[in-house]
Simulated scan of single mutants.
Amino acid sequence: MSDDNGAAPTGGAFEDVFTANADYAAQYALAGLKPVAARGLALVTCMDSRIEPLDMLGLKPGDAKILRNAGARVTDDTLRTLVLAVYLLGVDRVLVLPHTRCKMASVPGDDAVHDVIMEEHGVDTRSLEFHTDNDQQGALRHDLERIRHHPLLPAGLAVAGAIYDVDTGRISPVDF
Rank of each mutant, 00 (worst) to 15 (best):
P98A: 14
Q137C: 06
F18P: 00
N5V: 07
L88Y: 00
P108K: 11
L57Y: 02
Q137W: 06
M47K: 01
V107Q: 05
G12Q: 02
G32C: 10
G58Q: 04
A8S: 12
P9E: 04
Q27A: 15
D3G: 07
A29N: 08
A25M: 14
D92Q: 10
E119L: 08
A85N: 09
T19S: 13
L54I: 00
L95V: 15
P53D: 02
V17R: 12
G90N: 07
R73Q: 10
D76C: 03
L88K: 09
F18R: 13
T125H: 11
G62S: 06
N21Q: 12
E15R: 04
G6T: 08
A85I: 07
D48C: 03
R93K: 15
K60Y: 06
L30I: 00
R101E: 05
D3A: 07
L30F: 13
N69C: 11
E15M: 03
D92K: 08
V44P: 05
G6P: 04
L54E: 13
G6F: 00
I66N: 02
L89C: 01
G62V: 02
V116F: 15
G62N: 01
A37Y: 07
R80G: 09
T132P: 06
P53L: 04
G40C: 14
Y28N: 05
T81I: 10
V86L: 02
D16T: 10
E129S: 15
L82S: 02
S127I: 09
D63M: 07
E52A: 10
S49E: 01
L79V: 14
R126M: 03
G62Y: 01
I51T: 00
Y24C: 03
G58W: 03
P53N: 03
S127M: 12
Q137E: 10
T78Y: 03
D124Q: 10
P35M: 12
A22W: 05
Y28Q: 03
L128P: 03
T81V: 10
P53Y: 00
H131P: 02
P108A: 11
P61I: 01
A105Q: 04
T100C: 04
L54K: 00
L82F: 12
T125Q: 09
V123E: 15
G6C: 07
R73G: 05
D48Q: 02
M104N: 06
G40W: 14
V17H: 11
V96P: 01
V107I: 15
R73F: 12
D115H: 14
D63K: 08
A72I: 09
L59G: 01
M56K: 07
V17S: 12
A22I: 11
L79K: 08
N5W: 01
V113S: 08
G90L: 05
M1E: 15
